[in-house]
Amino acid sequence: MKITSVEILLDKNGNDTRAVARLRPDGAPATIGTGLANLSRTDADSPENIEKLATARALVDLAEQLFETVDSANALPTGWSY
């Protein structure tokens, strides 16, 4: 069994939250996905949701990069499209 971790880094700058998702398999270069979310006045009561949104966007970016490195037609579960 092999376990690989994804490291999530969050950086807040004013109303912007940037997330970086870093996958660093043993002996291989890291793959990094990024995501950005902005705290608007309507979101002021739930800033933790902005962190979640930025993190989700970073993970999507990371996943898209990983799909590009393999035959994406065979990488997705049945019924999914990419």
Rank of each mutant, 00 (worst) to 15 (best):
M1Q: 12
M1D: 12
K2A: 08
I3A: 10
S5N: 13
S5V: 10
S5W: 02
V6C: 05
E7G: 00
I8A: 02
L9P: 00
L9G: 05
L9H: 09
L9Q: 12
L9V: 09
L10A: 05
K12W: 02
G14E: 13
N15Y: 01
T17F: 01
R18L: 12
R18N: 12
A19P: 03
V20R: 13
A21D: 03
A21H: 02
R22S: 13
L23E: 04
R24G: 03
R24Q: 14
R24E: 14
P25E: 05
P25K: 07
P25C: 05
D26N: 15
G27W: 13
A28L: 15
A30N: 13
A30W: 09
A30I: 07
A30D: 15
T31A: 11
I32V: 15
I32G: 04
I32K: 06
G33I: 03
G33Q: 03
G33L: 02
T34H: 09
T34F: 05
T34R: 13
G35P: 06
L36W: 04
L36I: 04
L36N: 08
A37L: 02
L39P: 06
S40F: 00
S40I: 00
R41Q: 04
R41P: 00
T42I: 07
T42R: 14
T42M: 07
D43H: 08
D43Y: 01
A44S: 14
D45M: 10
D45W: 08
D45C: 04
S46D: 15
S46T: 15
E48K: 14
E48L: 11
E48W: 09
N49P: 02
N49I: 08
I50P: 10
E51D: 15
L53Q: 13
L53M: 11
L53H: 04
A54P: 05
A54N: 09
A54Y: 08
A54H: 09
A58Y: 08
A58H: 08
L59K: 09
D61M: 05
D61I: 02
D61C: 08
L62Q: 12
L62N: 11
L62G: 11
L62H: 11
E64W: 06
E64R: 15
Q65M: 13
L66Q: 12
L66M: 10
F67A: 05
E68V: 00
E68A: 15
E68W: 00
T69S: 12
T69P: 01
T69H: 03
T69G: 05
T69D: 08
V70F: 05
V70M: 07
D71E: 13
D71A: 07
D71Y: 04
S72Y: 02
S72F: 01
A73Y: 03
A73C: 01
A73L: 06
N74A: 13
A75S: 10
A75P: 12
A75M: 09
A75G: 08
P77M: 02
P77C: 00
P77Y: 00
T78H: 05
W80A: 14
S81P: 01
